[in-house]
Each structure stands twice: as structure tokens, then as C-alpha cells.
Design a protein around this nucleic acid. Sequence first.
DNA 1: GTCTATACTGCGATAGAC
DNA 2: GTCTATCGCAGTATAGAC
Lengths: 182, 182
Amino acid sequence: MSGGTKGLIAAEARRQFMAAGYAATSVRGVAGAAGIDPALVIRHFGSKEQLFLETVDVEGPFAPALEGPLSGMGERLVALVLDERMSNVLRTPYRAMIRATDSVAVRERLVAAMEATLARPLAARLDGPDATLRAHLVAAQVGGLLEALVTLEDPAVVDADPADVARYYGAAVSTLLTPPPG
Amino acid sequence: MSGGTKGLIAAEARRQFMAAGYAATSVRGVAGAAGIDPALVIRHFGSKEQLFLETVDVEGPFAPALEGPLSGMGERLVALVLDERMSNVLRTPYRAMIRATDSVAVRERLVAAMEATLARPLAARLDGPDATLRAHLVAAQVGGLLEALVTLEDPAVVDADPADVARYYGAAVSTLLTPPPG
DNA sequence: GTCTATACTGCGATAGAC
DNA sequence: GTCTATCGCAGTATAGAC
């Protein structure tokens, strides 16, 4: 992924996919910016879809939040999502991938990434019944926050005080972390 | 929206956008299925984007869940989202619109629809501080469930017992409906 | 073995003739 | 109002030059 032409194409493609999204990024535009021929992109990656899959991926940065006590984990997870410094590894690729979920490969990749970095390690930490389902529902909540914040840019959430969001939404997430009563 | 050629185009466009999504639906394909010329579609609607905006919309069917007591409202909201009978008014157009959020007009439309049918009426029902923010965070939770269920088709959620999902996720939603302690 | 040149098909959109 | 012709751009495949 480094020095060669293929690495150059990959770097440029990643930049454009993240900045402009899948539809608005063209194979020809990537080739032009990389100073090579469009056909070469296909030669190296097979298709535009494959180029996307090989250059854009989320690396759920949830590990720090999943360590430590269950108490407060909801707030820690939400704070990570809100952390601007996680934009390049979480928010931006998440948005790009959501908007490209016409492709089954893309959505399977996204589901797998969220499961591997969030749902599965979280399920291992949960007590009580239906730990797997509850962990996946936590992932759904995290996805919902990302959607409101990054995909839809809902002003009511974007302009809110992050501390308030972390407190309220974190409390709601925590509901699924503790075993249900009864 | 009925008899004329424009209505015929609209009906066919709606069908294809909902079934195949924005990118996979072509103006030419809609025209072909409607038995008319592609140029007519643009003549009547101006652009493919405008055609989408005028034919696809979510009608949040949340009103029934928002009536009645706050107690149990979370479960009622989630049950509505899970209700297969709401597919044509909620799930399917929601997925189509999410996947078309490259367009600012589409995402503004979706945010507005969720606010008008869910966040705003809900905020009016909430006690305690930050009612508006909490209502929008509920909308984010609902969006997260729709995303997992419909956009990403996460098997862990799709294949789960809807009663379990309503119970767990509904409880998490309810956390935001009751005034925070302290 | 890389890369370029060229071409094929289908797209959204426009201009102008019936 | 409707269709014809056409434009520019997209993704992709192939042939062959270095």
C-alpha cells in the first residue's frame, strides 16, 4: 500500500472517497489526480467498488471504552463517538460506507467491522440473558448517533453540548449494559 | 399525482426508487417502464434528484405511539418500527433516503420528516430539562434501529425475536423519556 | 510486467423539431 | 406536450507500446 503506483492510486482514492463520497468520486478523477491513466485503476483494483473496499474502512476505536468497569461505559462509548479526533477513523469512513450501502459487500464489511470492534467484545463483558443481542443493540444505538451526527447532520444534535449528549445518550446506552430487572 | 403522464412517471419512479435505490434507478429505466421518452421525465421533473424528492418520502407513523402514557412509550415506538406493515411508509423509504444522503436536499428532507413526526411532538410531551435534545436523541435511537434492521440488515438484529428487541431497545429509549435523576 | 491509447455502452441532461 | 438527436461524462475492456 506504499510506494508503488498501486499505493499512489489507493492513497488518492481514499482521500477522494472520504471527502466526496462514493458516487461523487470517479475513477477518472482519481486517475487524473494520481497522474496516471484511468484504465490502470481498473487494472490494479478490478472495479470501482473493489477500489472502495480496499481503501476505505472503519477502525472502530472503541477498545479504550470497553475496558474498565461497566459503570460509565455508556458515557465513555458516546464520548468516543463525539470525539473529533476520531473523525478520520470512525466518522468519515462510517458516513462514506453508509452512503455506499447499495453494495452488499460494503454493508457486510461495515456490519463486520462494528461487530468485531464493538458488539463482540462488548457481549463478552455483559451479564444476564441475551448478551449478544443486547451488545448488537448497543451497536445500533452507536450507529444511530453516528447517523444523526455525521450522516444526517441533524442540527439539534450537532449543535448540542457534547457533554449533554454524552450524559443523556450514554445513560440510554447503559440501560442495555446492565442485566434487565425481573 | 394521478392520471396524467406526470403521475404515471411518478408512480413508476417511486416503485423503482423504493425497490432498487437511487443509484441503481435510471431515468431511462423509469421512462422505459412507463412507456415514454426519457427526456419527458426531465422535462416534467427537472432532474433525477428532483424526481426522487417528489416521489419518495417517509411518513413517520409514530403518532399512535406518541399518544398515551409516557410509560411504555419506548416499547410502543420500537414495536412500530419493527411492524412489517409499516415497511412501505417507513422502512423502505427510509433506506432509500439514507442511501441518497449524498444530496443535501434529501438529508434535509429526512431530518425534517423525522423532526415533524417524531422529535417535535415527542418534545412537547417530555418533562424535565433539555426536552428538545432528548427528543432528538430518541429520534437518533429510532434511526439507529432502522439502520441496523433495514439499511445494514445486521443478522443479529434482523433474526432476533421482535418481542425481545422491543423490550430491550424500548427500555433504552424510555431512559430518555423520563426526566434524568439528580 | 507496467502502463497508455482507444473504444464500447449507458448515464443524466439539453436543444430544438413536430 | 412529446419525441429526436446529441452532448459530455461515467465505468470498464482490450490491444498493444515501452
